[in-house]
Simulated assay, not measured.
Amino acid sequence: MTRPKDLDPSSNPRAFLGAELRHARERAGLSQDALGSPLFVSGTFIGQLEAGTRRMQLEYARHFDEVLGTDDFFTRNCGALAKSKYPDHFTEAAEAEAVATSIKQYAPLLMPGLLQTRGYAHAVFRAYQPTATEEDIEELVADRLERARLLDDPTTPLFWTVLDEAVLRRKVGGAAVMAEALLHVATLARSCRIIVQVLPFAAGAHMSLGGTLRLMKFADAPPLAFVDGLGIGRLEDDPATVARHELTYALVGASALSPQESLALIQSVAEDYAHEDHP
């Protein structure tokens, strides 16, 4: 296994526990495969824990303390990882996303969270939770906008998204909100911060008709794939499964409009929404 680089423990709890896990494992003279085998997880998974790209579960922490002779160090500190502002099914994916070097996402219905504006995010969360208080909705919106600050860095991560044409045509929040949302995407694309393509309705059937797809790559850990649906999500690290999802994304991108054609369409639809709002 490739030895991961030293991580900054102050960056996040996963990085801290990962660095300590690697140190304790090497001190015990165990390989990643040997440590993971009793838990029925691969050495690759152990490597992802050490690299800080995967979350340490309590059952794993207890096993590590027992096998590595670390008293209850991992069990105690695992509690810090259990606290998250994201839904359970998305927590691991969001944490992995934050340390990824590249993110590729196919969005069939809604604008990807990293690209959403305040108005768009508010409309989405209000639709999800129609009886929630405005205070609760604003808290969700704030968390989403904070997550989107991942793109404040001018180069990392590389973000490449394929938007289904339905994302452009579905009027989330009204014409003014849609105009703002699409112009925001267009601005990011024109500034070369993101790569965006549109998969037109005319493309017909394709490999990702079943739902969303997100692929993440890391500097010192194997790639991950995340697939999700209504209130559910699954993070995949099996190499064969990830490779199949990578092929799916490649074929979807091949069926989509070019980045230049996509930008022109996004701009055109945004202008239509703007005119609709101000006839």
Rank of each mutant, 00 (worst) to 15 (best):
T248I: 15
V41H: 03
A93Y: 14
Q116K: 05
T161L: 05
Q129N: 13
P13F: 13
E135C: 02
R147D: 08
S262L: 00
L235H: 06
I137P: 00
E139S: 08
A202V: 09
F16Y: 15
F16G: 09
A51E: 08
E59P: 01
D6R: 14
P4R: 08
V242D: 03
H278L: 14
H23T: 15
L230T: 13
T70Q: 09
T156M: 06
V252S: 02
V124W: 05
A240E: 13
P223F: 05
A96Q: 10
P200K: 03
A205G: 08
E26H: 09
Q105D: 10
Y120N: 05
L39M: 10
E276I: 06
P239K: 00
D88N: 10
H275D: 13
P154S: 06
V124Y: 03
A123H: 02
D277N: 11
G229N: 10
I46K: 03
D164A: 08
T156I: 11
Q116W: 05
L145E: 09
D152L: 09
E165V: 07
L182C: 09
A96V: 09
F218D: 11
S258I: 06
L215A: 03
E97S: 00
G29Q: 12
D143W: 12
G204F: 01
R27M: 13
A28S: 13
M56K: 04
L251G: 01
A270K: 00
V252E: 01
Q116A: 07
F226D: 10
A240L: 11
A24E: 14
F125G: 02
G113W: 04
S208I: 07
A176C: 07
R147P: 01
C78V: 14
A250Y: 02
Q57V: 15
G173Y: 10
A96L: 13
E146A: 14
E134Q: 06
Q105F: 05
A270P: 03
G174K: 06
R76S: 14
P154D: 09
H184Q: 08
T155S: 12
L209E: 11
L21K: 09
T70M: 11
Q260G: 05
F218P: 06
G204Q: 06
R169P: 00
L109R: 05
L230I: 15
V67W: 07
E146M: 08
V242Q: 03
V242Y: 02
L235Y: 06
V162I: 09
H184G: 04
D237Y: 03
R169N: 10
Q116C: 06
H278R: 14
M111W: 01
I266H: 04
S37G: 08
A127S: 14
F16V: 07
E135I: 05
A121H: 00
E134A: 08
P9T: 10
D65E: 08
A225D: 03
Q57T: 15
A202K: 12
F73E: 11
A121Y: 04
E236M: 10
A202P: 04
L140Q: 13
G113V: 02
L163K: 01
G29I: 13
D71N: 12
P223R: 04
Y86L: 12
I195T: 13
Q32F: 01
P112G: 02
V167P: 02
L115C: 02
T212Q: 09
A34D: 12
Y86H: 15
